[in-house]
C-alpha cells in the first residue's frame, strides 16, 4: 500500500502525517488528527454530516482523500469556535432556533452555513436553503435549520407562537 507524507493546516495549526493513499479525509481527520467532530454518516457523499472546509470551501470529507489535502488549510467544526469562547454566529443561531436534536448531522450543517456566510459574503436565504438540501437531518424536520438559515441571510423570522 502506498504511503504519502502530507503537510496541512488543520484549524490553523500545522499537521504532518504519513498516510495511505486510500485513506479518506474524514477518517484521517477523525482517526489520525483527533477531530471527532467530523461525523461519518453515509460515506457516499449524500448525507453531508462529514462536511468540512478545505481552503474556505465546504467539502464532503468522505469523498476526498487525505493525500489530496496536502498543502491545504482544513477547518473542522472544532475550528469554528474554541471550547471556552463564544459560539460562532452559525452555531449560536442554530442553538437559539433549536436547529438540532441528536447533533450527528450538525457539524456538517454548521460547516456549510459557515462556509457560505464567511467574510463579506451576503448569501440570500434561497442560497442557504438550497445548500441545506444537501444535508440530511433525521430528527428535526428541518424546522430550526430553516429558521437559522433565514436569519443568517438577514431575514426577520417571527418567533414560534406559543399555544397558538
Amino acid at each position: 500500500m502506498s504511503t504519502h507524507n502530507i503537510h496541512l493546516q488543520i484549524n490553523d495549526r500545522p499537521h504532518d502525517a504519513s498516510v495511505e493513499g486510500r485513506l479518506t479525509l474524514c477518517d484521517f481527520l477523525r482517526g489520525n488528527a483527533g477531530y471527532t467532530g467530523v461525523h461519518v454518516g453515509c460515506e457516499h457523499g449524500v448525507c453531508g454530516a462529514c462536511t468540512v472546509m478545505v481552503d474556505g470551501l465546504a467539502v464532503r470529507s468522505c469523498l476526498m482523500l487525505a493525500v489530496q489535502a496536502d498543502g491545504c488549510s482544513v477547518t473542522t467544526v472544532e475550528g469554528l469556535s474554541t471550547g471556552d469562547g463564544p459560539l460562532h454566529p452559525v452555531q449560536q443561531t442554530l442553538r437559539e432556533e433549536h436547529g438540532l436534536q441528536c447533533g450527528f448531522c450538525t457539524p456538517g450543517v454548521c460547516m456549510t452555513l459557515a462556509a457560505l456566510t464567511q467574510g463579506e459574503q451576503k448569501p440570500s436565504s434561497e442560497t442557504l436553503i438550497n445548500a441545506m438540501s444537501g444535508h440530511i437531518c433525521r430528527c428535526t424536520g428541518y424546522q430550526g435549520i430553516r429558521r437559522a438559515a433565514l436569519r443568517l441571510a438577514g431575514e426577520a423570522v417571527a418567533p414560534v407562537e406559543d399555544h397558538g
Binding site: Y35, T36, G37, V38, H39, T76, V77, E78, L80, S81, G83, L87, Q91, L94, R95, L100, C102, G103, F104, T106, P107, C110
Partner: peptide
C-alpha cells in the same frame, strides 16, 4: 447543544 454544536459530543 454546547458540545454538539462545537463537535465535542462523544458518540
Amino acid at each position: 447543544d454546547l458540545r454538539l454544536l462545537t463537535g465535542r459530543g462523544v458518540y
